[in-house]
Structures are given as C-alpha cells and as structure tokens.
Design a protein around this nucleic acid. Structure first.
Length: 430
RNA sequence: GGGGAGGUACCCAAGUGGACAAAGGGGGCAGACUGUAAAUCUGUUGCCGAAGGCUUCAGAGGUUCGAAUCCUCUCCUCCCCA
C-alpha cells in the first residue's frame, strides 16, 4: 500500500474544507478503499426547489469531483420528499408545495447543470421520497423519537431565530431528521455541504450510530460570497453567477467583483495553488501586475469550466471591445421598426423595445445622461467597429428621433443595454 | 384560553392627524474618474405626465375638511402567563 499516495489523496480531499469530522476516520476509509477496493460513498443532498446551480454550489461539487477522480461513488439525493411538503423557510412567504412534475423537472435541470462539473458515469441520483414515503407517518414519528427538541434547536439558525423572536415552523425542525435518515438509508461514508449544513451533517452521523452504522465523515466547505463580496451567493439576492449563464454574462460579472474578492474566488473555484496566489498579491502591491489582468484570467478560467477555451476567449474579446476600447458590441439584439411618421419619441421607442421597465425610469436615465444613440444612414451597412464615442447623448426626455427607412438606429441605454433598430417602410407581411 | 408588542417602499428602519411619495442606512441604477462593470466621489431610486396628477405604509370598513398616524373587524409574527 502506498502510504504517500494516501497522504496525497487526503490532502487533496481536505483542502478548502472548513471542517472535517473527522480526518482520522476518513483516512481509515481511504486505506480500506485501497486495500479492499471498497469505494467511498460521498453524499450530497439537494433541495429540489432551487434548480439553478451557481458558483457557490460548485465549491462542493468540485470537492465531490475529487472523490470521483479517486474512483469513488457520488450519490446525489434529491430532497423531493420535503419538496412535496413545501418549505416555508423565510418568513411570510409560504412556498407552495411542488408537484411531482415540477420536482421531476427541477431534478432534470439539476442533472444537466451538475454534470457540467461531475462525471455522470460515477454519479448516482436518488430521491429521498423513495424511503421517506415508505416509512409512513408512524415510522416517521418513531424516527423523530430518536431526537430531542433541544438537540434540534442546537442548530445555529434555529437558536438564532429563537433568540431574535423569529418564527420557526415545526416541519423545519424535522427536515434535518429526514436528511439524517437519508444518510442511514444509503449508508453514506461521507456527506458534504456548506458550513450552514454542519448541524445537519452531524445529525446524520449520530443517527447512523443509532442504526449501528459506521458514522459518516462530515465535510463542510465554505459558503461563497456573492458578487457584492458580503452576502452569500444566492439566486434570491441576485448576486450570483449561474453555471448556465452565457460566457458573456459570466465574464462581465466576474469583472465586476472587487479585487479583494477575486482572490477568494481564485482560491475556492480554481485549482490555482495558494503559493501562486501569494506571489500575485505581492506583485500587485509592487505594481508589477495589474489586477485587471488577473481578473480577466479568472473570468476565462471559470468560463472554461462550463464551456470551452474558445468561448472564454470570445467573451474576453467582446468585453474588452465594449468596456476597454469602448466600442459597440459586435452583435447586439436587432429589431425592426415600421416607421410611418418621421419622428419617433425616444421614450416610446425604448419602452417598446422593452429595454427598461417603466417610463419614469427611462426619463431618469436620460436625465442622468445614460442614454445614447447613433443614426446610421443605411441599415444594410452598419459599420462593424464603431466606437461608442461616436454616439450622441439623448439630451432630454422630449427628444425625438428623426429616422425612417432604410436607416438604422443604435441605442445604448444604461451601461450594458444595446439595441440595433432597423427601420423599414412597409407593412408587415400578413 | 388570558395579557402584551409588532406588520412602513427591494431589504433594514424612522415617522403616531396636515409641511409625507414618506427621514436614515443597505442594495440597485446613472455620471465623473479609472486599471474594469475594482476602489473613490456625486447624483438618483413608486407610477403617468409640460405644469400637474394618480396609486402606496398587512387587509377590509369607519371617523375627519384631511389618515401611515385615530376607531372597528380580519389576517400574520413574536413575547409573557396558563
């Protein structure tokens, strides 16, 4: 048995983890894997209500992939049972219970997104309703009887909410129990989760002991900060980068993070070693390296994880084009406008194009100088490399565009919204 | 079951009869600047509009010339007692 290899594997698995309970047991399992060929079962529970995977999730997924590289089995558990009940965590927004169909749809979405990172061949997907429904209410009550209320209330967010006089629904209390039971049913060796899952993971450990199973290793990974650098990354906060977003969007979002946050993303989302990061940091403080270049590189690296190098490069070119060289995008949404009368009120046009949600907002943007336009004499002949400086600022809310076929109008509304409007002079085909 | 405290805009939070489309902070958006959509500074942040108007303070009614503010009922959250 190769002792050195085991140490290496162990190092790799433990890297980035906030906590591993406990490393010794993990080592035992590793040794047994190499000696007897018994793969480690690594478990991750998924909530079927939020099928959009973002960078925050990928930290855990990348860790799971480490297990897969070593030949281990990854078991994803779709928490459809709890999903069927409906989870009103949060305060007054009671989420409606999901139907079978919706859950199935969400699960499918999960699969598609998750396999951008995991190896489908080494991944097993299970639904916890399989065993939880079978348990029946009497079985479930018996299961609950293994825990005490104060035990459950130890969970951080429960006790916090209790202290802050915030509501806790009864069924929220039983979620961790259901999750723990999942571990028993699949006889998990390891369960992974964000640090917010620590309690749930540990509960699984305890329940397994009750069932005379070898307790699972609990690995908690950091919760990724969102684009704002403060709140955790989440869809509802809108500070996230989804794995299905277009390369262009991902690139832009990465470039918008602070220099400080960039290093955090490097550490957690890429394979760049810490020593390298330290070097970069000192180079930046010595002014030998422009942080922007590192950020560009980060953006490309991340895009490559979900797409490929060519698309990453394309996104970079596009970004530089628009924001560094301040040119118009190579491709922008095109629409046609049938102009009968000569003058078109700019606000009406922008509203019709759906570029802004309310008229007041358009007025605001214009007043603040955030709306630009450029008239092209022939829409068949829109110049490719047009600098934004050639555009003119819309002076006031009453501004009217004087254009008709075969002209075209380029609009820039706000920082990122572009539109090419081609004017035609004929009735739409019936 | 009894008693008490609350529900204000995207979020937090002030406001307890008129000067309130509603302080302050966060977030968002825009401008300047730049190294980038970093940082910083400034402005802006219900809707429609030329002025002006319209709809908002958990919901429904009511009192009043006038209500986020007072009254009644309903819904929701929390605390204490049982």
């Amino acid at each position: 048995m190769d002792v050195k290899k085991i140490e290496e594997d162990l190092d790799r698995l433990v890297k980035n983890c906030i906590q591993v309970v406990n490393v010794e047991e993990l080592k035992v399992k590793l040794i047994r894997y190499y000696r007897e060929g018994k793969p480690i079962k690594a478990k991750l529970g998924l909530d079927p209500t939020a099928p959009d995977i973002h960078l925050g999730h990928t930290i855990v997924l990348r860790k799971l992939r480490d297990f897969q590289y070593m030949g281990d089995e990854v078991i994803l558990i779709i928490g459809d049972f709890t999903g069927l009940i409906g989870d009103p965590s949060g305060r007054n927004v009671t989420r409606k219970p999901l139907s079978r169909d919706e859950i199935e749809k969400n699960a499918e979405t999960y699969r598609q997104q998750i396999f951008k990172i995991l190896d489908p061949a080494k991944t097993r997907v299970e639904y916890n309703s399989t065993w939880l429904r079978e348990l029946g209410s009497d079985g479930f009550i018996r299961l609950c009887s293994r825990f005490t209320v104060s035990q459950i209330l130890q969970r951080d967010d429960f006790s916090t909410r209790l202290k802050e006089n915030k509501p806790i629904s009864v069924h929220e209390l039983i979620y961790p129990i259901a999750q723990a039971y999942d571990s028993v049913m699949i006889e998990a060796d390891v369960e992974l989760g964000g640090t917010d899952q620590t309690f749930n993971l540990l509960l699984g450990r305890e329940l397994q002991r009750e069932y005379q199973q070898e307790p699972q290793i609990c690995m908690t990974l950091p919760i990724l900060e969102g684009l704002d650098g403060v709140e955790k990354m989440s869809k509802s906060l809108g500070n996230y980068i989804g794995v299905t977003e277009s390369p262009k969007e991902i690139f832009g979002k990465v470039m918008s993070i602070s220099d400080q946050l960039m290093f955090r993303y490097y550490a957690l989302l890429t394979g760049v070693p810490d020593t390298e990061l330290e070097t970069w940091k000192s180079m930046i403080s010595d002014n030998k390296l422009n942080p922007m270049e590192l950020k560009t590189r980060l953006a490309r690296t991340l895009i490559e994880q979900f797409y490929d190098a060519a698309e990453a490069e394309q996104a970079e070119i596009e970004f530089k084009h628009i924001f560094s060289e301040r040119k118009l995008p190579e491709e922008m949404p095109v629409s046609f406008y049938n102009c009968e009368d000569q003058k078109i009120w700019i606000i009406k046009l922008i509203m019709q194009e759906g570029m802004v949600s309310s008229q007041s907002e358009v007025r605001r943007l214009i007043k603040q100088g955030g709306v630009y336009y450029k008239i092209i004499s022939d829409f068949e002949n829109v110049p490719a490399e047009l600098p934004q400086s050639e555009m003119e600022r819309v002076p006031d809310a009453n501004f009217e565009v004087d254009a008709c076929a075969p002209m075209a109008l380029i609009l820039k509304v706000g920082k990122k919204s572009f539109r090419l409007i081609k004017f035609i002079n004929q009735p739409y085909p019936a």
